[in-house]
Structure formats: C-alpha cells, structure tokens
Computed example of a mutant assay.
Amino acid sequence: MTSDRITLLIVDDHPVVRDGLRGMFAAADGFEVLGEAADGVEAVRLTGELDPDVVLMDLRMPGGGGVAAIMELTRAGARAKVLVLTTYDTDSDTLPAIEAGATGYLLKDAPRDELFTAVRAAAEGRTVLSPAVASRLVSRVRAPGGAPGKEPLSAREREVLALVAKGTPNREIARELFISEATVKTHLTHLYAKLGVKDRAAAVATAYDRGILG
C-alpha cells in the first residue's frame, strides 16, 4: 500500500456505477482511482498493469465474471486486495467469491463511510464482511464432525470480538483495551475455541449467526 493514499481499480459492467464510484473516491481524501474495467478479463489485465492496492470487484458481468477474475488474481499472486462490491448476497455468489480469495464482501447499499472504511481495511489485508454476508458463511466455517461448543464468551472476549468485527488489528485492540498484544492473541485463541472456528472471519460470521454480534 502506498504511504499517502490507497490506489483503486473499479470493476463493474455498468458505466453509471463506475462513474459514481470514481466520483465518490475522487471527492474523498486518501484515495486514487487508477482505472476502470467492465469485466473480469479486463480487471485481471489492468490489475497486472496498474498494480492497485485494492480492486473493487462486481461479480456478475458479461464477458467475464468476478469470481473467475478473483481466482486468476489469486493464482497469479497479485498484490492487490479484492473487495467485492455487489448487489447479490446469495450463497452461490458469496461463498465462491470468498473461497476464491476475496479479502472482503460488501453490498452496494452500504453507506459511503462504510465503503471507505472497508477499502482502507482491505488495503491492510483485513477481512471485511457485511453482517448479511457474514451470516451466509456460517455453514462453511463450523467445525466438522458436529456443532462447535456453546461455552459463553467472557465480557473481555466479547469486547475483543466486537473490535475484530470492525476490522481492528491486534495492535489497535491492545491499545484500546489497555492490554498487551499477547493478551489479545490469547483472548482470540479462547474465543475461537468457544465458537468452534479457526480464524477472524469465521469468528465474526459465527458470532452474527448466534446473535453475539448484532
């Protein structure tokens, strides 16, 4: 990621959507739109040429869909982080995109500030999932061989989890809660075990599903 601003590639088959997103980011501090693509094939080509920090990727596009493009970028080892921005939140869209390597998944009705925050988080490699999308992932993240444990989270574990859901890195969680990073990692290990998950995205998804996060 560049030191002063986050560079973007906007991928959407609708010119009006691309124009709107370009204008939105142009009017905000800290962002630079390097280019636009109308389909997944063009997105892969331009990502290679322009090397953006973040690719804002639509999913359903004539001439080359987003999931195939995400898979190709992942396979090619692209530096860019892919943030899906789409109108679709069905299992057939959400799960393949995440599995293909998308860093985050937002719906197009997300508020402007939420989109900006998501792009910043994605540029830093942090997972960003809208609540509606997170709940879709639950069936794929539960521990195999039965339901995960139901042991309740402690108050501090809930605090840590709430900050994780906002995309807060461990260092900032430690600072905000006045604890060490090592303690943050310990809390994460414990809440992963209690939720029956293995990573941050799965913890957030399961927490939404159980009503721990609302």
Rank of each mutant, 00 (worst) to 15 (best):
Y192G: 03
L8G: 03
R18K: 14
L163S: 05
E151M: 12
D51A: 14
V54Q: 04
V164D: 03
G167P: 13
L85F: 12
V17S: 05
P96R: 00
L115D: 15
A207S: 01
A132G: 11
D91M: 02
T186A: 07
E36F: 11
A100N: 06
L191A: 01
T2V: 14
R79P: 13
M24F: 10
P52A: 15
K185E: 14
E157M: 04
E157T: 09
R126K: 06
S180T: 12
T90W: 00
L106S: 01
G40P: 15
E72A: 14
A69G: 06
D29R: 12
R200K: 07
V54C: 02
I179R: 02
R45P: 14
D53Y: 02
T206K: 03
A80Y: 03
F178Y: 15
D53F: 00
A134I: 11
P52M: 03
D51W: 00
A122H: 01
T183F: 07
A69Y: 13
A193Y: 09
D12C: 13
G125E: 10
M1S: 11
V11E: 03
R142V: 13
L213T: 12
H14A: 12
S180N: 10
T189D: 01
G23D: 12
A123M: 05
R45L: 15
M61G: 05
E99I: 14
V197I: 12
G35N: 14
S154F: 06
R158L: 15
E157K: 00
F116M: 09
E36I: 15
T168H: 05
F31M: 03
L137I: 07
I212C: 07
K198G: 10
R18C: 11
V82G: 02
T7R: 00
F25E: 09
D109Y: 11
V82M: 01
L50R: 06
R112K: 15
P96K: 05
G214H: 07
V128W: 02
L107R: 09
A201R: 08
V160W: 02
S139Y: 13
E72K: 08
V67W: 02
D209P: 08
P148A: 08
G64R: 03
V55E: 04
G77Q: 07
E49K: 02
E172D: 12
L56Y: 03
P148E: 06
M57T: 04
G149Y: 04
G104E: 01
